[in-house]
């Protein structure tokens, strides 16, 4: 393999016109102009890419949040039996009050009239158990039952005045029952002498402000017993 050209031919080729050594001004300016435009286009692409990425991230976060909300707020799937059970009004059992410590009562929160007198009456009656039992019975009066039979949703939506009235009815009946218990014990002579006057006064205080005929009769009897020695 030989590429040695004849000297004369090589000399002729060596004298060939040379190539340009630099771009002319028009081509050079065209290159710089295109460089400027390409840079701005690249900047725009980067900006659009950034914005698209940010928008996609926001969208993903929004979808995730929406999904969590839907999942958390969707009720559990219910069958026909469950649906039927939900349509039955909720009947709450009569609230069993906690054992009341001496000198305090849960009814204070409603009526504000049971306190020391209740404990005094119970002690005079010999045991707290009958008093508690009677009070439970008193709370299970038609008014209280009416309150308990109200469906839960209706009870939650009831006006505060209605709830206060129902509580007042229950308290009123309970006070009459308690006074009746004291009077019964007095008639049967079961009140200890040392506790008798205090129990009668406590029972009398329970009837203050009640204008029912039964309460008036009990009040009159208690007044008579308190006046007599």
């Amino acid at each position: 393999m030989s590429d040695d050209l004849d000297p004369r031919l090589a000399e002729l080729l060596r004298r060939a016109p040379s190539a340009p050594m630099a771009l002319d001004e028009a081509h050079r300016q065209a290159v710089l102009h295109e460089a400027r435009q390409a840079w701005f286009r690249a900047q725009g692409r980067r900006r659009r890419t950034f914005l698209a990425t940010a928008a996609a991230a926001c969208l993903a976060a929004g979808v995730a949040g929406w999904s969590l909300r839907v999942v958390s707020e969707t009720p559990l799937p219910t069958g026909p039996a469950m649906t039927a059970a939900q349509s039955v009004p909720v009947v709450l059992p009569a609230a069993a009050p906690p054992p009341a410590p001496a000198g305090a009562s849960m009814v204070d929160a409603v009526g504000g009239s049971f306190a020391v007198p209740e404990a005094t009456m119970a002690k005079a009656l010999g045991s707290e158990a009958p008093a508690e039992q009677e009070r439970h019975e008193a709370l299970a009066t038609p008014a209280a039952n009416h309150l308990a039979e109200v469906p839960l949703a209706a009870r939650q939506d009831a006006a505060p005045a209605r709830r206060a009235r129902a509580a007042d009815l229950a308290t009123r009946d309970g006070r009459i029952v308690l006074a009746g218990l004291v009077l019964t014990a007095e008639r049967e002579g079961r009140l200890p002498p040392a506790e008798r006057i205090a129990a009668l006064r406590a029972a009398r205080m329970q009837l203050d402000g009640l204008d029912l005929p039964e309460a008036q009769a009990q009040r009159a009897e208690l007044d008579r017993l308190l006046r007599s020695p």
Partner: peptide, 19 residues
Amino acid sequence: AQAAQDAVQEAFVRLCRDA
């Protein structure tokens, strides 16, 4: 020469685009 200038210009333009 003109074709060479055009080819070289195109090379530099593509360099800027594909930088």
